[in-house]
Design a protein around this nucleic acid. Sequence first.
DNA 1: TATGAATGAGACTTCATTCAT
DNA 2: GATGAATGAAGTCTCATTCAT
Lengths: 195, 195, 195, 195
Amino acid sequence: MPKIVDHDRYRQEILTKCFDLFAQRGYGSLTMRQIAKEIGVSTGTLYHYFSSKEDLFVQLIEEITEQDILHATDLMENQSLDTMEEKILALGQFIFKNEDYFYKQTLLYMNFFQQLDLEQQQLVEAVKRSYKRYQEETMEFLGIYDLAIANHISCFIDGLIFQRAFDPESLDIQQQMDLLAKMLSAYLSSKHSDS
Amino acid sequence: MPKIVDHDRYRQEILTKCFDLFAQRGYGSLTMRQIAKEIGVSTGTLYHYFSSKEDLFVQLIEEITEQDILHATDLMENQSLDTMEEKILALGQFIFKNEDYFYKQTLLYMNFFQQLDLEQQQLVEAVKRSYKRYQEETMEFLGIYDLAIANHISCFIDGLIFQRAFDPESLDIQQQMDLLAKMLSAYLSSKHSDS
Amino acid sequence: MPKIVDHDRYRQEILTKCFDLFAQRGYGSLTMRQIAKEIGVSTGTLYHYFSSKEDLFVQLIEEITEQDILHATDLMENQSLDTMEEKILALGQFIFKNEDYFYKQTLLYMNFFQQLDLEQQQLVEAVKRSYKRYQEETMEFLGIYDLAIANHISCFIDGLIFQRAFDPESLDIQQQMDLLAKMLSAYLSSKHSDS
Amino acid sequence: MPKIVDHDRYRQEILTKCFDLFAQRGYGSLTMRQIAKEIGVSTGTLYHYFSSKEDLFVQLIEEITEQDILHATDLMENQSLDTMEEKILALGQFIFKNEDYFYKQTLLYMNFFQQLDLEQQQLVEAVKRSYKRYQEETMEFLGIYDLAIANHISCFIDGLIFQRAFDPESLDIQQQMDLLAKMLSAYLSSKHSDS
DNA sequence: TATGAATGAGACTTCATTCAT
DNA sequence: GATGAATGAAGTCTCATTCAT
């Protein structure tokens, strides 16, 4: 009888452990030996589960992309919030809580787009779809259906996460979300009074 | 004085040519041979001007950081614009024109922050200062002196640039800047009428 | 007695299946995994029957060497042929029929002699004995007892098999054996008339 | 100014030094590190001159093939021999002198034909042409133009070389060539008296 | 017995870097 | 200054082999 191992489960475990490593060092600078050492397996084992370093990275991106869709649906739904301002603040809190994850994810995605040779057009599409889906979920949560405004908010949130690279302490996410809420409210009500 | 001028000029030329390469492949994945080949010199020459790959990269970051300060001052000043909305649109156009450069710069900075081993604390500070300076210039140009709002706008702009990675065509920079202008106006006037 | 029979039978079965593989890829280029896959067992099973790759190879050589002696006796005896020429033609047909086997055997032997590290002096002797035995059987079959002529014929036959590597179609074995028969006859009768 | 090196000359030197190594250990069992160590260079240098282990091997085969054509023409011509028997004995001496080279070459060629993956169809053709050329030269030297007989002699010579693997001492090349000469003479004169 | 997951030494190959020219 | 041949450490990946099941 063979050694009993839940192949797929272990594969995912390895991927989970790789997430931080790739985010911290970057695809090109992270070596398979480093990965093996950090997650406590042999390089042979790594290659038992993944056919190459690229494959490992691509599967990691796939995993993230898939999980993100769950994230978006799960984490925002079970809240009873009335006004849009409250909702935006809640969104801010969500981002704040997952700031580290979002930042690392951002790094991984940039790495992914940087590697031209990967030529994973299919996965590129999946990532984009995931991004779009995220945006939609956010908009639905906020009750905003104007595409330009949706894009605006997305951009802002991406920028928020991205700034962590430069100076994690210089920015108060909560305050910024509060500001966004007020700007949006002012804009929407001004727009309303136009008509 | 020795003929440092030529040496230094050539050094800068090499750095300029490296900019795209590092942005496209990433620090870890780009090799000295690739650089040499693309630039059209020998690896020996590369090492004549830079003591190591890391040094080359660090000098590139320094160069960018320094030039950025010039960019910010140069490109936005010589315009006579009255309203804040006009100014924001002008800013949008500036970003739009330099979109590719900003995107690559963003990639380089992310790469830089990813490489822990570099331990270039001094340069990290310089980069941060440059970023702050950029922000200040922008705010002065727009005539906005509220730090929270300044940060808000910065975030949004970073997000704008960053989104290019995911889908260059999905976003209309001009439209987004127009929206920002309106939101800001609405917010500021609403705030004003409060008092 | 324990059930050694089955174990041994299976061992031989594996060896038989390995024959082609080693001949086609060569000792150094053939991997245990490839063997396992082609044979349809696990690598574990391979190691259950053979202590190492070298052991497997050595046992294969042993097997071949042993079987060859049988071959030689079996296949040539049950024929009632009168003249030497007829016999040589029959020998030609025998070679022709087993051409593929002989060629692969040749490859394996060369591989075996190439691997100095094996240090299987005992087996080397066995192989040589087998070769000698082969030669003797052939000579007896042909009714030739002059050692130089025996060697001559052996050489020629080896060359015949060996040439398959270069160009399987360029050589007509039957024709060549016919020629050998005639040359031998002419030589022997001329020698006879000398005395 | 670059380090002055005759690239092609050095490449050939390396190939020459590799000849024995590949013959002794076989393609699959010989490692690049072993090669580097034995010929006294670094692995890096090896890869400076050859793009891969396969490339190195293939170039070695090419080299041998090319040189062989020279061998054949050079080494047999400058002799004034009258009878065919004398010529055959001279051929025997030539083989005897170069026995070691011929044997190693044989091993290399067998290795080459064993590696299916190499898929060097073009080179396979070159090797075959070289072999044919060899045969032709020999026949011209001997003054024999009957194809069957030519093939016969080639086979015999190949067998002669090949037997070295089994037992270098059991065979007297000179004696064998003497025998061949006599058999041929007897055959040819008997054939002549037929008509 | 039989399996195949796990191992880590070592294979092939590439890299940043040096240095003779 | 400029070159690119040379280096050997280190990268990716494979291998024979082991061992829990």
